[in-house]
Amino acid sequence: MFLTLRLLSNRHPSFIARTVFVKNNNVDDACRLVNRILGKEGILEQFRLTRYYEKPFQTRRRVNHEKCKAIYNEDMERKIQFVLRKNRHDPFPGCS
């Protein structure tokens, strides 16, 4: 309820979203966590994409390239898993 009240007065209240507290004066870690969140949410990607206008042909090319890459990566991952498969119960003996 408090959140809705706050959202009514201000659609984007600051210091709620994309905020990380610094623990033990460890600024580096906090910065990294913020960046990780931004990267994973796709905010940085969107920022870079909308910095300059992307012509439609460029959008098409980019999307196609992403599709190809996703297919390739999926297949490659499967291949690697196949090559690295283990047929023993202790897959890495002596490493426990």
């Binding site: 507290f21 931004l38 992307e54």
Partner: peptide
């Protein structure tokens, strides 16, 4: 200075006006 929190406030829009032309 003692920093309590770090906030990111980068303006990002998912339906932005047309951006300037590419470099």
């Amino acid at each position: 200075l003692e920093i309590i929190s770090i906030t990111d406030n980068t303006h990002v829009s998912w339906n932005p006006p047309r951006a300037r032309k590419a470099r």
